[in-house]
Write a protein that binds this DNA or RNA. Structure first.
Lengths: 201, 201
DNA sequence: CGCGACGTTGATTTGCCTCAACGATTGTGG
DNA sequence: CCACAATCGTTGAGGCAAATCAACGTCGCG
């Protein structure tokens, strides 16, 4: 079972660099299969985040709860995505993020020590994670700049372009949270957009 | 001359992983020393960003100009920082960022092809850049969440804590730009802060 | 000196928040 | 299988932080 499900992760790595059979075995043995129930938490703010997870099936929201108790979605994760709290994972500090399953989900997890061993055994994996992290960084940088320069409506359109079909996958109030606005505001915004779009016919 | 100045970069790498004399030579030969005049641009929005630069002396602002012509500072860079437009550097797409020297500055630059060769010759450098990128990512993620959850005043305090002395290094209107607000708003905010702080004595 | 860059202040507007109430839908325990 | 609660989206009234537009003083510098 585990072997079967690790297959997707191996394929994923192999898309970046060639992986030998021996290395595949090492990768398989470094990860653990884990089921997460709907609304189940993979890691939690305040506790040490001791895992990074590769999503095999299902979906997650990674969010932060601020001092006023409000939740802010940092990103959503779907199959082939990695989730984790990098700062906590590598430093041992308490996590600043939560990862919650939006539905019944299956992931492959790895802990910090095992990941370090894995990097030592297969150094070329460092390259893959460098590239993944760079891609993630460019997206977050773009979102930061948009949060300064663009209206909520513009950010909404940017999200829809970058993640088509997102509206069918996550409830609207969580999209609002991702955009940094309240559900009420998104609801009003959509009404406005419908009106101006509708009028143009 | 070049050798002398490359020293800091070698030291910087050596803080992460051991570097042999032979490798030092490779690193030296991969980078070019470059002087940048005050207000000079290291790379520019719309053109392919063909360099990453390690700051030896001076300082930079990395900013984006939006469709309305407004500039937004993504970050400031000081000695020991890397600057570049990752997306453009690796993909060849037009850059979305500008890098401008705030003062007379000196950097070491590397181009994409040379960097790839460098990674092949010294694979353990991948690890260093993975770690650098991760650190950068955590900072940007935190700023993104703060832009949603915190007031401009809170973001201002966060900046001062994370970069003490920044006010002596960068003009106030550029700090406002970094915070995502207008210079007028920062000015008013500081007056307010002075008042409430002053009153507590 | 004169010009441009920078910071300040004022008056007004606006995008989004806050608080509150209310249907519709989902799901769940009795 | 129904009854009730929870979740989700919508709508309204009012408020606030920051933007906008405009004017003005100061400083540094070619």
């Amino acid at each position: 079972m585990t072997e079967v499900n690790s297959t997707r992760l191996i394929e994923y790595f192999a898309e970046h660099v060639p992986i030998s059979d021996e290395e595949k075995e090492i990768i398989r043995n470094s990860h653990e299969l884990r089921h997460v129930k709907k609304k189940g938490l993979l890691f939690e703010q305040g506790s040490h985040c001791t895992l990074e997870a590769f999503v095999l099936s299902g979906s997650f929201r990674i969010f932060h709860t601020d001092s006023k108790g409000n939740e802010h979605v940092l990103y959503f994760a779907f199959p082939d995505w990695w989730i984790g709290d990098i700062a906590s994972f590598y430093s041992g500090e308490p996590a600043g993020l939560n990862a919650q399953a939006l539905e019944e989900s299956i992931v492959l997890t790895i802990n910090p020590d095992t990941k370090e061993v894995l990097f030592n055994k297969i150094p070329k994996l460092e390259r893959i994670f460098r590239i993944i992290t760079q891609k993630h960084l460019t997206v977050v940088q773009k979102r930061l700049l948009l949060s300064y320069s663009a209206s909520a409506a513009d950010r909404y359109h940017e999200l829809l372009e970058r993640s088509p079909g997102i509206e069918q996958l996550v409830p609207q109030h969580q999209i609002a949270s991702y955009l940094g606005i309240l559900p009420e505001s998104l609801s009003r915004m959509k009404k406005q957009l419908m009106r101006s779009k509708g009028n143009s016919f």
